[in-house]
Design a protein around this nucleic acid. Structure first.
Lengths: 252, 252
DNA sequence: ACTAACACAGAGGTCCGATGTTTGATGCAT
DNA sequence: ATGCATCAAACATCGGACCTCTGTGTTAGT
């Protein structure tokens, strides 16, 4: 195991053991590297990995701090890896959503407040008024996110968001289809009514129908795309990167 | 945005766009850094972050490769962050498990094979014969993992594993209690019977009872610990970091 | 012709020192 | 009291040097 990897573990253990707490500031890179017996470069690699995982927060010109370690923060990296999954393996993620969303909606039915219900109705109105597919998808996503929030469970929110974002994005090219908007709207209407009645069982059922419906549509379209041979962008088959495509980027 | 961060995004985009595929080998650090217009140090930080996220696989003396990007690989980092969550915020994770496990068990009831059923029975036998709490917990974890596997959904497996591992570990000090073993065993027996009958509804119910039972026990114990003011283990192990060098942060 | 030991080239691992940038704090002038 | 200039501290980035490990081609021995 490299010094960098062991340093990652070491810092993690320092946090888990309570020797460093959320919000604490780490010693300067120089000192920390010295006290850990490694070079600054190696330490920086470890810190970069941990800050990417939202465990550390590096503030330039100030110092390196332990983040709040709140679930929504730590789980925000989940969508990063899910976005990297291949389409082939994505069906499993959708299935997880199909398993999780109904129960979540049922839970929301037990905990949703009147204010949140009102916001949900407003969300539906603005979705009805949405015109372009892009906005429609955003409203759709917002609707589900609001229900997740109504459970009061931030971890659940983050997880649902991560496993839904990919599905939602894939829904863009589906949203433009005729009947899609009305279908989604009526499904949402059913869910909203169940939530209004605070009926967990009905909410569960309505969400099941909605998610399953979505999943079937998506699978049909994936199959269609596959059969039509309309393959994704495949520029070159080189085993290595085509150097010319990696430009010395000076973006942002 | 730092050079390193934009490099992370750049490499991710190269993978997402299909220009680099799973198993592909990246150009040497020197070349890659040159072609991206950054120093080798900065590139290494980016690569370290991505390899920690199981996106890249760095083989010393050989080269840097894109991993298989399989869900179970990408999601294996999930337990890393969940382990870092504070006890205070962990109840939400358990609730997610309570929402997800019953549906998963129901799904397993529809898909479990005879071979897997037999393995499950064997698992129960070895749990009955287990003596020390440590082994009991392992068998318990194994039982649930096998059910997750029976769904045939590797993503679901990984997620359940990540959100259960912490709960399972916390169960160690609970497993030694009288009645715990028999309680768990009878609950498992119920689940096993439902799976044997391929009865999704019953499997769902049995899993719900089991998980809720576990969650209640855990919460009671957490509350007890809190009231007793029995603080977590705080070892005096003098790690390589000097305690005095870590200044308490300024919490807002 | 085959096998095993060797040598080499290439790739990542680690470290160092220097310099640029940003931030927060200090102190002075208004 | 306010605002600005200044400064020190801390992170950002770089380039190079040297080490270690790995894969592979080569060669000596069988």
């Amino acid at each position: 195991m490299s010094v960098t990897d062991s340093t990652i573990v070491k810092i993690r253990d320092l946090i888990m053991s309570g020797q460093i707490k959320p919000g604490d500031r780490l010693p300067p890179e120089q000192e920390l590297a010295l006290s850990m017996g490694i070079s600054r470069s190696s330490l920086r690699e470890a810190v970069k990995a941990l800050s990417q995982a939202k465990v550390l927060d590096v503030r330039r010109g100030d110092g390196t701090y332990v983040t709040s370690l709140e679930p929504q923060l730590l789980l925000s990296g989940l969508s990063f890896v899910i976005d990297l999954m291949e389409d082939r393996t994505l069906a499993d993620i959708f299935e997880v959503r199909r398993l999780l969303e109904p129960s979540s909606t049922a839970l929301a039915a037990q905990r949703i407040t009147d204010v949140q219900l009102e916001a949900l109705r407003a969300s539906m109105v603005s979705m009805r008024e949405a015109h372009d597919p892009e906005e429609l998808v955003i409203r759709d996503m917002d609707f589900h996110a609001q229900i997740a929030e109504a459970t009061g469970n931030t971890s659940l929110c983050s997880i649902l968001d991560a496993i839904s974002s990919r599905a939602v994005r894939a829904r863009v090219w589906r949203a433009s289809m005729v009947g899609m908007k009305t279908m989604t709207l009526s499904a949402h209407q059913l869910i909203l009514e169940a939530l209004t009645d605070r009926d967990p069982a009905l909410a569960h059922a309505a969400a099941t129908v909605h998610v399953s419906e979505s999943e079937r549509w998506l699978n049909e379209h994936l199959a269609m795309r596959k059969n039509q041979g309309k393959s994704p962008v495949r520029s070159n088959i080189h085993n290595q990167i085509d150097r010319t495509q990696i430009e010395p980027g000076v973006e942002s």
